[in-house]
Every structure is written in C-alpha cells, then in structure tokens.
C-alpha cells in the first residue's frame, strides 16, 4: 500500500514537471517562422507581404495581441486606417493595458483627426482592467464570499460553535461582496465596449433613414468607432463617440469582436 502511494506521488511529480516544462510551448512564446517572416517583411517595408502573412496566421487560429498589433501597424503604414484601428482594438481586447498598442492607436487618431474615446469619470476605475481580468476578479470574489458562508456554516454545525471566528468570516464575506460589486461594474462597462464597430470607408455618410438615397446627417471618418443600436435591412443605426446617431450601410462596418 505504501509502495502504491509512493509511486502515485512520483507519477504526480513527473506529470507536474512535464506540464511546467511544456507551459512555454503551450503559450506559444517563441516567435514562429511565419511570424518572423512577417516581421522581416514589415522591416523591409513590404507591408502587403507582411499583412498577408499576419492575416494567414490569424486565419490559422494563431490569435495573439502581438499579431494583431503588428498587423495594425502594417495597415497603418499602408494607409488603411479602418483596418489599422480594427486590429489595434482587437489587440487591446487581448491585452487591455498594452502601452505600445495604446500609443500607436493614439498616434493614428491624432494624425487622422479621429476623436479619442471619452471615458466618463465614473467609468475610469472600471477601465483599469480588461473584461477578462474583471471576470476573473468577479469569479474569485464570488467564490471567496460563498466559501466564507459555507465555512462558517460548517464550523457552527460540525465544529465547536463557541470557538467559531464569526468576525473573520463576516469580514471575508463583506470584502468579497464589495470586490464582487466592483468587478460587476467593470464587467458591465467592458462588455459595452465589445459591440463597438469600426467605420471602414472615408467620408461614410451618416443618413437620416436607412435608404441609399436618404439625406445625410453627418460624415464619418474611416476608423471612427461607433456603437450599433438597431438594424433595418442592410443598414445599421449607430451612435458615434460624439453622440451623433444615424444610419450607415452594414457593409461599411466591421465589428471589433467578430461574430463567430
């Protein structure tokens, strides 16, 4: 019996070591040859080639913030502003705090006269982290709160209830609930960013009604971020960061988060 336990322990240890050793491989840390080739094409200012290889990597399912970011740079330098904004936004989905992505997006917006998204003051704490981070914080705080309730109940029922550290459990639950509320707010704010769409054509008219011959309300710039509100046939009713609303052809928009 002891032998069996000892063997199981050894097996577990070996498995853990194997997992640790393979972690970098699974994370895809080292640059692949295609990724390197795309980077070399970019360095040689062959942006079309670089874009083609980066796009192939994404189509093959190798999605990473680095690929989106580099692709965004390539599109920007090629002059395709809408696509550049789209790829930067997608890079930010994976790495919300990536300084290089934020910096290049700011440069692009400044150079093209695109407005920076305005974050209301009350939302500022919630944009400190991305959606995934908030989601994990929410999960951890919910688990902590629920464990607090469970452990106290178990202690009182099955342990010496006179010695139960009630204050500790109450504190644990209270803090967890506060963090959970914060995480809920963060998730809500970040989720609203998910349905943003990027305008793909320069001077795309914002129309008063969803028909090709309808009058224009305003003109949108390529790379503008808009929020879809409703659909009618091949048109989408959108709101841009300036608060303007109108109809725009569906074909002129690309969602930051792809449908599939």
């Amino acid at each position: 019996m002891k032998n069996l336990k000892s063997k199981l322990r050894q097996g577990g240890l070996i498995l853990a070591l194997l997992l640790l050793a393979s972690a970098p491989l699974m994370a895809g840390k080292p640059g692949t040859s295609d990724f390197d080739a795309a980077n070399q094409a970019y360095a040689a200012k062959k942006y079309d080639d670089a874009i083609r290889i980066y796009e192939n990597l994404l189509q093959d399912g190798s999605l990473s913030a680095s690929v989106f970011y580099n692709l965004g740079n390539a599109y920007y330098l090629k002059g395709e502003i809408g696509k550049a904004v789209l790829e930067y936004q997608r890079a930010l989905l994976l790495e919300p705090n990536a300084a290089d992505v934020a910096a290049n997006l700011a440069v692009l917006r400044q150079s093209r006269g695109l407005p920076e998204p305005v974050v209301p003051v009350w939302q500022k704490p919630f944009v400190a982290f991305g959606l995934n981070t908030w989601a994990w914080i929410g999960f951890a705080s919910l688990l902590a709160a629920m464990l607090g309730v469970f452990l106290r109940g178990a202690w009182l029922n099955f342990g010496e209830h006179e010695k139960c550290p009630t204050r500790l459990f109450h504190g644990m639950v209270a803090v967890s609930v506060l963090v959970l509320l914060l995480a809920g707010g963060g998730m809500m704010v970040q989720t609203q960013q998910l349905d943003q769409q990027v305008v793909m054509g320069e001077g795309t008219p914002l129309k008063v009604s969803p028909f090709a011959d309808a009058g224009d309300v305003a003109s949108l710039k390529e790379g503008d971020l808009v929020k879809p509100l409703k659909h009618y046939n091949e048109f989408v009713y959108v709101k841009n960061p300036a608060g303007q609303k109108g109809w725009i052809p569906l074909a002129k928009l690309k969602p930051v988060l792809p449908a599939s």
């Binding site: 840390k29 980077n39 999605l63 990473s64 989601a135």
Partner: peptide, 19 residues
C-alpha cells in the same frame, strides 16, 4: 510608431472573452 513586437506571445483560439 512604437516598434512591432518580435515575440508572438500567448496564443488564443478566438477573441471571445471568458464571459
């Protein structure tokens, strides 16, 4: 522009958030 990244970084199958 800030330079491109030379490491591909952590790979994901899609952009869908955990939620």
């Amino acid at each position: 522009l800030a330079p491109i990244r030379l490491e591909e970084g952590a790979l994901r199958a899609n952009l869908l958030p955990v939620t």
